[in-house]
């Protein structure tokens, strides 16, 4: 087969299959990316560098991660930090979120602070032999309600990135986000270490019983409020499976956050278990999440 024909088949197949894994026949709104998710002339473009990390906190795991540095970064001034789980998905300029483009646009308009983005993939323990299966560590790292993922960020990733860039140590200038299990992971990091992370962005977060994460609404209601600002997004056509019901779980989270007096926002649409809605509203979500930091800097 000619190379050009192969490319045609592969791309054609990708288009035909788009959305099929998340087929949603509930008449979901057609969420579209807005202008802040597109490249604009005159807006400085940050750099994205890919690296690999072998962890001790999650012993033996290996993973890729990417670091985004905006053009406006000034080594004399510590940058704000935002971490993303399933980093390869969030950093990809062809997928739902296109975070580097959105960051470029919002930082240029001063609608969010100069922020270094750290996009981390879940860990894998490689197999010892080629005919064996690696141990996938995504669920263990993301779904377990424990301080271990926060420890991994604070002991390993932030110090490593901090060798090259001056990063803030202020918890209100550290944000963390993710989709699905990566969403509950973001919440768990802030819940366990509000002294280190105080901003959470969750897309179709798995606040269900995959590994016990369904406890959070109950914990939130009966724990003294922690200084966490949280943006939750979910849709009415999200998952309903053995682990739980995602739309109900996210509504439970929102109700608990409201009850306990948290600074939260809940965008509940009609999408399924994917990043379409979250991607479409990402610029607004980030503006809302960072507004206090932007206001504080403008006031100075």
């Amino acid at each position: 087969m000619q190379a050009t024909r192969l490319v045609f088949y592969v791309l054609g197949g990708a288009l035909l299959n788009l959305g099929v894994p998340f087929t949603n026949l509930h008449g979901a709104t057609d969420y579209r990316l807005g202008p802040d998710s597109e490249r604009k002339e005159g807006v400085p473009v940050g750099t994205v560098t890919k690296s690999q990390w072998t962890s001790k906190v999650f012993g033996g795991t290996q993973r890729d991660y990417w670091v985004y540095v905006p053009k406006q970064y000034d080594p004399a001034r510590p940058a704000s930090v935002m971490v993303f789980q399933d980093g390869g998905n969030y950093v990809d300029l062809t997928k739902d979120f296109r975070v580097p483009i959105v960051f470029d646009n919002l930082i240029h308009k001063k609608e969010m602070p100069v922020t270094i983005g750290i996009f981390i993939n879940p860990g894998v323990i490689p197999a010892a032999a080629t005919d064996q299966t690696p141990r996938q560590n995504r669920s263990f790292e993301y779904d377990t309600p424990s301080p271990q993922y926060a420890e991994f960020l604070l002991k390993e990733i932030l110090p490593e990135v901090g060798k090259s860039y001056k990063l803030t140590t202020k918890p209100e200038e550290r944000a963390i986000g993710g989709i699905s299990s990566g969403g509950i992971c973001a919440w768990t990091v802030a819940w366990e270490r509000p002294d280190a992370f105080q901003k959470v962005l969750s897309h179709v977060g798995s606040f269900t019983n995959i590994r016990g994460g369904h406890i959070y609404p109950a914990l939130i209601r009966k724990t003294e409020r922690k200084p966490i600002r949280v943006f939750l997004q979910d849709g009415s056509a999200d998952l309903d499976n053995l682990h739980g019901n995602w739309p109900l779980a996210n509504q439970e989270m929102a109700a608990a956050l409201k009850f306990a007096g948290y600074d939260y926002r809940f965008e509940f649409g009609d999408g399924g278990h994917n990043g379409k809605h979250g991607g479409a509203i990402l610029p607004d979500s980030l503006r809302w999440l960072w507004q206090d930091v932007v206001a504080a800097r403008a006031g100075k």
Binding site: Y9, V10, G12, G13, A14, L15, L16, N17, L18, V20, P21, D86, N89, K95, P122, Q136, R138, S139, S180, N241, L242, H243, H273
Partner: peptide, 26 residues
């Protein structure tokens, strides 16, 4: 044949992008 090839290759391209593990109920 061509259609099948298109669909199959499309799946091969997309499946690794789906990070969600397969759900296995009782």
């Amino acid at each position: 044949q061509v259609l099948a090839l298109i669909v199959i290759t499309g799946w091969l391209l997309l499946v690794p992008c789906v990070a969600v593990a397969q759900d296995m109920a009782l």
